[in-house]
Write a protein that binds this DNA or RNA. Structure first.
Lengths: 347, 347
DNA sequence: TAGGTCATGAGGCACGTACCTCATCTATGG
DNA sequence: CCATAGATGAGGTACGTGCCTCATGACCTA
């Protein structure tokens, strides 16, 4: 018979009793210490599953007199979005500390796969339980991810995934859906059809390619009256993007829409405002940053699709906690939603 | 001299040392127990502020062998949105339990202020640390909020605020911004202008009135070519809304847009599909629920603005934790963003 | 001055887990 | 049949906080 009515949370003591072993053995199994026969370990695992035991993370961290250590590795570039990601991390440091989580940020050179790999290799499992990285699909990075995982560091990917590695979790938006959403809005903005130009950063980047694919597919399926121009690559740079937009505006006096699925939005806004056609062309861009905010406010940009860096960081931290107590398998988190911002719901 | 280099988190021991008092006295101050002179209490408060002590919530809950108890009071109506709020709460029960938070939900009759007040009055501070309510601005509710606060229960408002009461926190979206956003999208959808009908639930509801105000203001300022019809009240009911939409469609053969800022979207979709004009009229509705999802998928609805119930519940729980350790002042949480959904970014 | 009240200190146990030491038991090889 | 190694049990201490008891001292009042 159990306690009268009220059900307590299961503890290690309950597991020991249910498995018919001692507390010490349960502890050895739970913390992966040696000296337990396979058969015994299985008995313990079975008992854990049966009574639904879940380690109390807080008590565990308390007992170890130690915080959960999280390391973010974020590209250090002129890219405004990466800066806002880093800001979002910084905002979470304080609140996370109250939950016994210690957060560190490493900035590495953008697009430098070896720098990222070295950064991962340098992580010590005693000083880092979980690493969150923003990375492209380079072999050296993939190897470093697997190596870190073997050393006992849970690795999670952020913004861009690394399928095929031992990464424990991915956090980011569905970029193809983002592209489709842009097309769906643009199509409704231009019921009469017209020319729409697309600018990308680099089509070698998985997220940009995904957005373009989604945009193209949705336009073709739903809005055949729209004529697509491009894509033209602006390499996420302000000046290059500005030149491209200026050129587009000159060449196409009847340009009806513009979709920049990469960065460099400062240049986009500058070019639009230098012409006198800002507001007359429907413009959709990505990531809520200083230049896109200004564009929304001035009317040069109609809609900004956003990855929601704060939400991504929040989920990354939640996933790290969940991995820390779960041990095996993927963490389950809320999916990151695509933020859609107009001037009117700017936060 | 401190520990070498590494700074530990401040504990009650540090506070006692800094204030020059014993652990017992610090404990009495921290937990509001009697038997401390005002002067001594002030010394302790000063020490807490000076060394930046923050109670370790997990250790505290552990020591009390007790979870943080949270009660949600949510209207029980046919309103789909309230159902999705309750679902969002249910989804959080498990994860919250892992953080030593125990969540209960009370459903009360919708629009029944006395039922809500009684529900609040019945809460026992020993069995409920924090209550989260969805309430209209009735005097009996306001009194019950203040009474619960006096009894030591932190009250937070959800979706609709109760300014002027002792409520500790409000969680919800900016409904005027939502209305402006709807207008901004509708205006861009109809570059040639045209008739747009507005349907509300009841203009006595603060959130509906706010949405209408925002919608009207943004249309007037930016899209003078749009002619507004209504608002017509559908009382958030399916059949009434269906009748209204059917009538609108019959009366206005040239209707270009439809904005339902209340509930009853099942009727909206049914009426649109019964006519053969679904897809030919731009439709914006509120709250991502079963009927609006179906409408988005079928093309009857173009855009759904969403309060993001999951986000609201998440923030409510985070705020409750923050209130539990802070004690005084408002909790700081992330603002809830207005979700914007098209068929293409449906989650 | 005796008796009382109040402020404060000292210390212990508990919560659930981690980690340590030491003792006991079992199986295996020589 | 004993030495040995490995598996397991028993029990302790610690983490930061809450809550309890008991002792001590200061001050007030009759």
């Amino acid at each position: 018979m159990n306690e009268i009515g009220l059900r307590r949370r299961a503890t290690v003591h309950d597991v020991a009793r249910a498995a018919g072993v001692s507390l010490a053995t349960v502890d050895r199994v739970l913390n992966g210490r040696p000296g337990v026969r396979t058969a015994t370990a299985e008995k313990v695992e079975a008992a854990i599953a049966e009574i639904g035991f879940q380690r109390d993370l807080s008590a565990s961290l308390l007992a170890r007199a130690r915080d959960l250590k999280l390391t973010f590795v974020i590209p250090d570039s002129s890219n405004e979005f990466m800066a806002s990601l880093a800001d979002a991390v910084a905002r979470r440091i304080g609140p996370a500390l109250a939950d016994r989580m210690h957060i560190e940020t490493h900035r590495i050179r953008a697009l430098d796969a070896d720098a990222l790999a070295h950064s991962l290799d340098a992580l010590d499992a005693r000083q880092c339980d979980c690493a969150v990285i923003v990375a492209g699909e380079e072999p050296s990075v993939q190897a470093a991810v697997d190596s870190a995982t073997r050393r006992g560091i849970a690795v999670m990917t952020l913004v861009s995934d690394l399928p095929g590695t031992q990464r424990r979790h991915f956090i980011g938006i569905d970029n193809e859906a983002a592209g489709r959403t842009a097309a769906s809005l643009m199509g409704r903005f231009l019921p009469a059809g017209g020319k729409v130009a697309v600018i990308a950063g680099s089509l070698h980047l998985r997220d940009h390619a995904d957005r373009l694919a989604g945009f193209r597919a949705a336009l073709a399926a739903e809005f055949p009256a729209i004529e697509l121009i491009g894509p033209i690559e602006g390499h996420d740079e302000r000046s290059e993007t500005q030149a491209i937009v200026t050129d587009l505006l000159e060449r196409h006096g009847d340009l009806a829409g513009l979709y920049n699925l990469g960065a460099g939005n400062g240049g986009l806004v500058a070019a639009l405002e230098a012409s006198n056609r800002a507001g007359a062309i429907r413009v959709i861009a990505h990531e809520l940053t200083d230049p896109t905010r200004r564009g929304l406010r001035s009317g040069a940009i109609d809609v900004v699709l956003d990855q929601n860096p704060d939400g991504e960081i929040r989920e990354a931290i939640a996933a790290a906690r969940s991995l820390a107590l779960g041990g095996n398998g993927q963490a389950l988190t809320d999916p990151i939603e695509i933020g859609i911002f107009l001037r009117d719901n700017l936060r």
